[in-house]
């Protein structure tokens, strides 16, 4: 199926191009920020000579495009630079935290995605009846409440009152998996509640759209049960929009968890980013920005590829 391969290759090439464009934007964005790296390293009391020397050492006197390519070259070789605030290698620091963030996002996705799709299917099965209304109301309520609020309510109830789960999601190297899962139970719950409604409602809408088709009537006239009709005949034709919304939410789980990480003091990327924005640590902000962009682009790329693969007309041309 060369047609599919060509389309997929095109998407991947486009994704890479997009990532390159984003890297330019990130670099340019941090350049126009006020402040000066040398100044912020040496502090307000630095002498002009010391500043000039440091600038020369850091290569800050070179034109912007040379610095950009130097940075890009480093990034492509796994060198994200050195953090200004503590002089440590950014790649090593991020490695561990990115692992933590992905761990949290993974488990939140494992809970949220199947739950959202199942609830979406149930909603369609009992459309406009009480199960549908209940699911809609509860999930809308949970999306309407800010995540810090849900976070604190859960902490109050499950940690402070009952002590079932820890209020701080502390994880460390070599921690056994079960304990780790127990530690992140509350943040996973909060994240699930936050992303559930969007995915559930899009699943419902996408399937409802397909339910109008003539082939659904054909399936009903075969005597299939309502659930079989939905799962066998409606769902396969609604995969593309569902995967799209799932991927957007997965991206949010990786990129948008800042608030949740701060509430539960979870050592992930969000916390790290917030800390270093506060310290004006430009190389760290650049590196995390680039990683977040890469995650977004990669997940949307996957959504596109799945959409292409789920289309039988592209998979099996005439």
């Amino acid at each position: 199926m060369p047609m599919v391969l060509k389309l997929v290759a095109q998407r991947i090439a486009l994704g890479l191009l997009l990532l390159l464009a984003v890297s330019v934007l990130i670099f340019a964005g941090t350049q126009i920020l006020p402040g000066d790296v040398a100044q912020s390293i040496l502090g307000q009391s630095a002498t002009p000579t010391a500043l000039a020397n440091l600038r020369r050492d850091l290569g800050l006197d070179d034109p912007a495009y040379i610095r950009y390519f130097r940075w890009l070259w480093g990034v492509m070789h796994g060198d994200l630079g050195t953090a200004l605030s503590n002089g440590q290698d950014i790649a090593t620091q991020i490695g561990e935290r990115l692992g933590n963030t992905l761990f949290l996002a993974f488990w939140a996705a494992v809970v949220a995605v199947p739950l959202a799709i199942t609830l979406g299917l149930v909603s369609v099965r009992y459309r406009n009846r009480w199960p549908d209304r209940l699911i809609s109301t509860v999930s809308l309520a949970s999306i309407s409440l800010p995540e810090f609020f849900i976070g604190y309510v859960l902490i109050y109830y499950f940690s402070a009152r009952h002590q079932w789960f820890p209020s701080l999601a502390t994880v460390y190297d070599g921690m056994p998996l079960l304990e780790r899962l127990r530690a992140i139970a509350l943040p996973v719950a909060v994240l699930t509640l936050v992303v559930l409604a969007h995915m559930m409602r899009m699943t419902r809408a996408a399937i409802m759209n397909v339910m109008q088709s003539a082939y659904i009537e054909t399936a009903e006239l075969k005597g299939l049960s309502a659930f079989k009709v939905i799962i066998r005949h409606a769902f396969p034709n609604a995969i593309s929009p569902i995967v799209n919304v799932v991927m957007i939410n997965l991206a949010y789980l990786v990129v948008g968890v800042v608030v949740v990480e701060v509430i539960f003091v979870y050592p992930g990327m969000g916390q790290y980013l917030v800390d270093h924005v506060a310290k004006r640590d430009v190389p760290v902000v650049q590196a995390t920005g680039l990683i977040f962009a890469a995650v977004y682009i990669a997940l949307n790329l996957i959504a596109d590829v799945v959409a292409i693969l789920s289309n039988p007309r592209l998979r099996h041309p005439k």
Binding site: A214, Y215, E217, T218, P236, N237, S310, P312
Partner: peptide, 11 residues
Amino acid sequence: SQSAAASFNPA
């Protein structure tokens, strides 16, 4: 049905 084209599931 009248339109078999629409009555078969395309997937």
